[in-house]
Write a protein that binds this DNA or RNA. Structure first.
Lengths: 151, 151
DNA sequence: AGTGAAAATAAGAACCC
DNA sequence: GGGTTCTTATTTTCACT
């Protein structure tokens, strides 16, 4: 499906999405026009889903990160779907994972401080009837590997 | 610190890091040269930390995502630091969070299939002496909100 | 800080191998 | 599928406000 040149293109764009097509082409040993076409196809096929700036949450007034594991009951579509919609609409929510395991959801939030976190937990989550259990993991440090390693 | 124009620039780049400077300038009502300078300063100040392509893990041969919560003992620097280094070096690791809460670490992994996941769990984590407890959450769906909502 | 115009550079299209 | 060239567009610098 993806050849080594495609993988190289993806890797470069994972590391720097704002690299110019000319530079990208040079890095992967292609002519600019060929490289442009490859990128276009990768986007069209959904291999490259988007390009996003990574902004410091602290600079944006949300220095505190936390993971919240949540169990809800009953775990039916009628309860699950509205819960997902509700959680995603919260400005504090950064990411939401629907998971199988000890918990049902893993919500990542970015907040101003501990008071703000408490408020989100109590007012947004524990107050909801379907939420039966909730655990909070305060994030000390978070490292994201933007580029996928080869297997 | 950041005025509303800076916030608008950050928001646009979070949504599309490959937007041209010309278009970005038009969206935030600045001249291209002014916009370019603002972006330069935002990068220099560390507000914008980088720009990354979001690639489909499935297309890269890792369709299965999982969160692994890990407790280690003892929780001392001599044990913690090597554990972090070790985990980050695993090709399957996508993200690592050092957290306070019921668990010590939250590791996000991308794997080929259930067999690969089992292998990672058994060979990479449970086999390590410092790992005292481990729980796996298989990810059904994962939604990431790239742009930070205003508070 | 912000702008507009000029020079340098890159993108994108047409065409060929 | 890949490359070269050419036209168009964008980026980036700089003198000025």
């Amino acid at each position: 499906m993806l050849d080594s040149v495609d993988l190289a293109i993806v890797r470069e764009l994972q590391n720097d999405a704002r690299i110019s097509n000319k530079n990208l082409a040079a890095k992967v040993n292609l002519a600019p026009s060929t490289c442009l076409e490859r990128v276009r196809i990768l986007r069209q096929r959904g291999v490259l889903r988007g390009f996003h700036a990574d902004a410091d949450p602290g600079a944006l007034g949300r220095p505190l990160l936390a993971f919240i594991t949540i169990r809800i009951r009953p775990h039916t579509r009628e309860i699950v779907d509205p819960f997902i919609t509700y959680t995603l609409q919260l400005p504090e929510t950064i990411a939401l994972s629907h998971v199988a395991g000890p918990d049902d959801f893993l919500v990542q939030v970015a907040v101003r401080d501990a008071t703000h976190l408490k408020q989100v937990l109590l007012e947004c989550f524990t107050s909801r009837r379907e939420v039966t259990q909730l655990q909070t993991h305060l994030v000390f440090s978070h490292i994201y590997k933007w580029a996928t390693d080869p297997m």
